[in-house]
Amino acid sequence: MLDHKLFYFIAGLTLGLALAFGPAVVRRVVNALEGPDRVAVYRTLDGHDLHLHVFSAKGQRPSTGAPALLLFHGGAWQYGSPEAFFPQCRVFAARGVSCISAEYRIASRHDTDPRAAVEDAHAALAYLRGHAGELGIDAARIAAGGGSAGGHLAAMLGVAADEALRPAAMVLFNPMLDLSPGKPDHHLVAEFWQAVSPFQMIDSAPPPSLILLGTEDREVPVASAQAFCDAVIGHGGRCELALYEGAKHGFFNLRENDRAYFDATNQRVAAFLAGLGWLSD
């Protein structure tokens, strides 16, 4: 917790920087002041620590712990930062859902491909389950989600070969679901696409799933998302596809002077979680 004098100093400095350099500075300072309650190292590889940014559920928690939402940022498995989902995490923590934004290996920083990112996603979920008590979360109510490439990682968790390792639910923002030949981004995984394409791996016991997608998304065709949902339902699962007319890739992000899609998608996710009995509608 910041000392109040330091807080006002930073607030004044922020205003000055914002006037001088624009709103991007404001976003960075807000993330610093309203950042995670805890940052945990969940994996260390080749001297690199990978972190989970934990926004703890506010209010009274059930004796079993709060439900949790583990989110992975987008960036084509090459770029991006956990800060991308900090705005959503603040929203859901205020609603009583612990929200965790994960760092994972990406090409620009670690010289890796999507297979490494998938490994990290499994490790992140395993860490949350193994440390659920100290984090105040319910190990049986952890949903995995993310945007674009991050949605792909969450979907890969949902189709894990060992059903016991799957999350309890999936919240997928314009996720890469079908990486087969002829699909967008196949070129990034052409040599090993069968190992990382969630659509082809759907089998029995898929977790309840929500997909949020813009109708004008060139990276994730509506037909691919619908096929994924149909396959989940065909294997006895539950899948909801929420379409946003005219929206493009990344539409759910918080933008300057435009909260419409941000607020709408957050409300839709909250309704989905309420349908699971994880929070009050």
Rank of each mutant, 00 (worst) to 15 (best):
F9E: 15
I10S: 10
G12L: 15
G12T: 14
G12C: 11
L13N: 11
L15G: 13
G16H: 12
L17M: 14
A18S: 13
F21R: 15
G22Y: 03
A24D: 14
R27N: 14
V29Q: 03
N31M: 06
L33T: 04
G35D: 00
P36Y: 04
D37C: 02
V41N: 08
T44K: 03
T44N: 05
D49M: 02
D49V: 06
L50R: 06
S56L: 14
R61N: 08
R61W: 05
S63T: 14
T64H: 15
L70F: 05
L71I: 00
F72M: 01
G74F: 04
Q78T: 14
P82R: 07
F86N: 01
P87G: 01
C89A: 15
C89G: 08
A93K: 08
R95T: 11
G96F: 06
G96P: 04
G96T: 09
I100H: 00
I100W: 06
S101G: 05
S101P: 05
R105D: 00
A107P: 02
T112P: 09
T112N: 01
T112K: 10
A116S: 15
E119L: 14
D120L: 00
A121G: 10
A126S: 02
A126P: 07
L128A: 02
G130T: 09
H131M: 12
H131D: 08
G133Y: 10
I137V: 07
A140P: 12
A140D: 15
R141P: 08
I142M: 02
I142Y: 08
A144V: 04
A149L: 01
G150L: 00
A154Y: 03
M156A: 05
M156Q: 07
L157M: 03
D162R: 02
E163P: 14
E163C: 09
A164L: 09
M170F: 09
M170V: 09
L172G: 05
M176R: 10
F192A: 00
W193K: 06
S197E: 09
M201L: 15
I202P: 11
S204Q: 12
A205H: 15
P208A: 04
T215D: 08
V222Q: 14
S224I: 09
A225Q: 00
F228Q: 05
A231P: 06
A231Q: 14
I233Y: 07
R238C: 11
L243R: 06
A247I: 02
K248F: 13
K248M: 12
L254S: 10
R259K: 13
A260Y: 13
Y261Q: 12
N266G: 11
V269C: 06
V269K: 08
A270E: 13
A270V: 04
A271S: 13
L273G: 01
A274K: 01
L276P: 10
W278F: 09
W278N: 02
S280K: 13
D281A: 15
